[in-house]
Write a protein that binds this DNA or RNA. Structure first.
Lengths: 239, 239
DNA sequence: CGCGGTGTTGAGACCTGTCAAGACGTGTGG
DNA sequence: CCACACGTCTTGACAGGTCTCAACACCGCG
């Protein structure tokens, strides 16, 4: 059930059987949530963190005027709010973009890990830092890239992240976001998302229909995105 | 010397004398660097992290075309690259915006902390998560706010962060960035930064001259920024 | 005393947003 | 089973925020 999460961790460092056991037993409960629900509300006191088993979640920040920014997308194996363990409450919401299966991890068990398993602690700390690195890359995108590069960048990133857990095959993966949601992630209106998608299709770089994204020219897509996967820290080293 | 850092930590949780001692002894070396140097180069293997004693640092990400995004600003008391402890190398550079005094903290000593001081470990982990939260707010700014709100947002944020360490008095603080650098932080050209600054001055919200920022109307500035300091996690709770 | 960095200003271009309308598919209730 | 509402995708015309390019003033510094 937490296999995808183990794959993510083991892409970065060795995980001992003792640590694997601790990870398996840290889950207190598994719940299913429908599409389009607010799973975590900003400001709430949080007694547990949420490991995503299947489906897509998004971290979102809203402004009073109704503008919404998706600050990160989460796929199977991601801890959507591991940072809530130390923060205690969050500055953003977490919403379900699809139907999702979630594993709840009580903060007390994470605390036990920090008391007893320092190496695993460092690996979990690492994962929040990788999250932050992805955030930085999005910041770069929003600040400096134009729409078409931004979109290409995101598609490249997801191809790598989904590849690790086996959810991207032959540079092709399920992509359930609507154009409105894609705009909220990229800082664009849905109208401009539509036109930008058409441009990517016209250049024969991608196809996107029926919630499935096919990258037709990965090299070309990477070039437009100026994509360098270093920020995903996909290398295995002792932490 | 690490007083500002202790202030930052103690704003979030109690720090015991044993933990304070560990923090004081983790520094192996203090170095001064001139203005406009690359202090940390992306991709390098890093044996230590950098605690900023005085001056300003910035995390920057560059694109092949020369575009530069400042992804975070660091002031006295900030660990500029604590995340490098688990990441081992960085996806961004760290540059000095002013002359700086830096305290170097070997990763081995941080590792010792994770082995022996779980509570302090959680507090340090927390600080990287607060960094990430600031990053998220910047992502929101770049994606959804227009230039004037973005700039107001940054000035409000720095007022709070500098206030904690005593470097903002009466909503007034030293602000050494050039307009070019401010643009790199806000995702704007220096020309537009110039015009936006003029607009903030015209509305009698701020003054900025001689590297000193004076907030003349904090309430008004907050309103334009739609500023909510929750994302800075300035509350003290057991972690 | 000249040079480079910084700040300022103007004119025009361009990327992206706004507003509006229509096509299409799907689910639902009469 | 059809009518209708609703969300999503698409397209066009136009507006607007920000960028580009260029020039100039100012200032500290070698």
């Amino acid at each position: 059930m937490i296999e995808a999460h183990l794959k993510k961790l083991r892409a970065r460092d060795d995980i001992s059987t003792e640590e694997e056991e601790a990870l398996r037993t840290m889950v207190s409960q598994v719940v299913d949530v429908p599409q389009d629900r607010t799973v975590i509300r900003h400001g709430d006191d949080l007694p547990h963190s949420t490991l995503l088993i299947s489906g897509w979640l998004a971290r979102v920040k809203d402004l009073p005027g109704g503008e919404r920014q998706i600050t990160e997308l989460h796929v199977a194996g991601d801890f959507a709010d591991l940072h809530a363990f130390t923060l205690k409450r969050l500055d953003h919401d977490v919403i379900s973009l699809t139907r999702c299966r979630l594993a709840l991890v009580p903060h007390q068990r994470l605390k036990d890990i920090t008391e007893n398993l320092p190496h695993l602690t460092r690996v979990l700390w690492l994962m929040t830092n990788v999250d932050a690195s992805i955030q930085r890359e999005w910041t770069l995108s929003l600040g400096q890239r134009q729409a078409i590069s931004r979109m290409a960048q995101l598609f490249c990133e997801l191809n790598v992240r989904l590849g690790v857990i086996g959810l991207s095959q032959n540079d092709s993966y399920d992509f359930p976001l609507t154009q409105v949601e894609l705009g909220q992630a990229l800082g664009l209106t849905s109208v401009h998302v539509n036109r930008t998608l058409q441009e990517l299709r016209r250049r024969e770089l991608i196809d996107l229909e029926g919630g499935r994204l096919r990258i037709r020219d990965l090299q070309g897509l990477k070039e437009i995105a100026e994509f360098d996967p270093a920020y995903l820290y996909m290398d295995k080293r002792p932490r």
